[in-house]
């Protein structure tokens, strides 16, 4: 039963409640770095990394520190604090021990720090009463969904950059059109597996 539950959580986070296209969270990098497939991949790698670690640490903090002390209302402030410090910490570690990974993630890592999607996932884990394992699976699901959405979006935008777009729609306006069409098509996943 537990495994089916985990798969359900993953698929739900991946497609049915896709963080970018259904929940509309983390839209700034969705438009900011989706000009090229390469940079969108770099961003998704950073999101994957930060989202997993941030949700684990915030889950621990909430369940082991804030809940016993009945300080649930502090969660917003604590989570922001923790996520920001955590990313800094990871940056220092990576710089020292994995310089190549650090170079690949480069500017995207600090960009992710203030991303609302990361904070939202930490909150969802609390709201849905996820266990620690479920939290990790959920974070992976969301991050993979993020990757799928942003890479698809970047591929389409690379094509559109070469297409004869009407003058008034050049650049971001047409990108918003594309995003809304993609969002509509992702709505088609609603009801998949009865979730």
């Amino acid at each position: 039963m537990e495994e089916i539950n985990l798969i359900g959580i993953f698929v739900s986070a991946l497609l049915i409640n896709n963080i970018l296209l259904i929940r509309f969270l983390g839209l700034c990098p969705f438009f900011g770095v989706s000009g090229r497939v390469k940079s969108s991949l770099g961003m998704s790698m950073a999101v994957f990394f930060v989202m997993t670690t941030a949700s684990i640490v915030s889950w621990m903090l909430y369940h082991w520190v804030l809940l016993p002390l009945q300080l649930e209302f502090l969660r917003t402030a604590t989570f922001i604090l923790v996520i920001a410090s955590l990313v800094q910490l990871e940056e220092i570690f990576m710089k020292k021990f994995f310089p190549n990974l650090y170079k690949a993630l480069g500017v995207y890592l600090p960009l992710v720090t203030t991303n609302c999607a990361i904070l939202a996932v930490a909150f969802f884990n609390i709201d849905y009463n996820h266990s620690l394992i479920q939290t990790i699976i959920y974070a992976w699901g969301v991050a993979t969904g993020y990757t799928i959405a942003i890479v698809l979006f970047a591929s389409i935008r690379e094509r559109v950059a070469l297409a004869p777009v009407p003058e008034a729609l050049k650049g971001y306006p047409i990108a918003f059109f594309i995003a809304s069409l993609m969002s509509l098509s992702f709505l088609g996943f609603k009801g998949l597996f009865g979730l």
Binding site: L61, V65, L66, L69, L71, F73, L74, A77, T78, L81, V82
Partner: peptide, 9 residues
Amino acid sequence: NSVLILGGI
């Protein structure tokens, strides 16, 4: 408590 916890973290 809240000041201590948040400040402590």
